[in-house]
């Protein structure tokens, strides 16, 4: 028996760690820029990748000596963005250079060594307030398995004015006067839809609101839907999906970071817009 236990202990102590050579690291430029007609600043970040293995480098290495320019391919208007130290980005304010809906833009970054990084993106058309409507909805009080008060909701939202090639995603809360109940309040690239054919986009969702937000009491008799409707282009969708598709799950399959940049660089140049709407619930 002693022999058996000894073997058991030996096997259980078999697992050993050793440090081995990591993958070879090649430093690459990283260019990230989201443009939107709603932003007060047009920003482009130019930095470098850092080795994952090796000494910890808490400080990001930004490139301050690049030449960053934007060209509106629709009307030919261009601008050179200036280094803005407080945000570590190249920027231009929206008064000097206005990003416009449905315009196509080209980003060009010339690195100090002459390397060029470029990309093109199209800003989505502006959303109209009557594009969105609530086809059906329900909002009911219930008790969960812990005996707590919850509200079960489901909703069918429709967007009739979606532009082809862009992704639409609603985020919303249910309002009861000054109080609100959380509906879908988080970004989820998996919940976005792209227009296919002539059919309007249909968003069918359901969930549980655990409690009412705000002070005082609420009766669960909701009156309005607060809608934050997002629209973005394909590179935006691909880049975000590649970052968030694992949903923080350490068992998830690794994801290749999407990039729409030409040149030996990582990152994205993409465009988005959003609209805030209040839709009465009948």
């Amino acid at each position: 028996m002693v022999c058996m236990v000894g073997v058991g202990l030996m096997i259980s102590s078999c697992e050993t760690d050793a440090t081995v050579d990591p993958p070879a690291f090649v430093r690459k430029p990283v260019v990230v820029s989201y443009i939107s007609p709603k932003d007060s600043l047009v920003k482009v970040q130019v930095a470098y990748t850092e080795p994952y293995f090796g000494p910890y480098e808490p400080q990001t290495k930004f490139e301050k000596s690049a030449r960053v320019s934007l060209l509106d391919l629709t009307d030919g208007d261009s601008v050179v963005l200036q280094w803005r130290a407080q945000d570590s980005v190249y920027a231009v304010d929206s008064f000097s250079y206005k990003i416009q809906n449905a315009h196509r833009y080209r980003l060009l970054v010339v690195m100090p060594n002459g390397e060029q990084i470029k990309s093109v993106s199209t800003v989505p058309p502006a959303m109209k307030s009557n594009d969105w409507k609530v086809n059906s909805w329900s909002f009911k009080g219930d008790t969960n398995q812990f005996g707590e008060q919850v509200y079960r909701w489901n909703i069918n939202l429709e967007n009739e004015g979606a532009a082809p090639g862009f992704y639409y995603q609603p985020m919303f809360s249910f309002l009861e006067g000054v109080y609100f109940y959380e509906g879908r309040t988080w970004a989820d690239p998996g919940f976005s839809l792209q227009k296919q054919g002539n059919e309007p986009l249909q968003f069918i969702d359901r969930g549980t609101s655990w409690s009412m937000m705000g002070s005082g009491g609420g009766s669960g008799l909701v009156e309005d839907l607060y809608l934050l409707a997002w629209v973005y282009d394909q590179p935006y969708q691909d880049y975000f999906r590649s970052q968030f598709s694992d949903d923080g799950n350490p068992f998830a399959e690794p994801t290749l970071l999407h990039s729409n940049l030409e040149g030996n660089a990582l990152g994205v140049f993409c465009a988005y817009d959003f609209a805030e709407l209040l839709i009465p619930l009948k």
């Binding site: 990230v32 994952y52 997002w230």
Partner: peptide, 28 residues
């Protein structure tokens, strides 16, 4: 196998309302 090879800085470059990167591999 697939291993993380580089950390890609995206500081402050998220549009409004989007969550930050989940720090799965301890990238910061």
């Amino acid at each position: 196998i697939t291993l993380p090879q580089a950390i890609v800085p995206v500081n402050g470059m998220y549009p409004q309302s989007y969550p930050q990167v989940w720090d799965v591999w301890g990238s910061g």
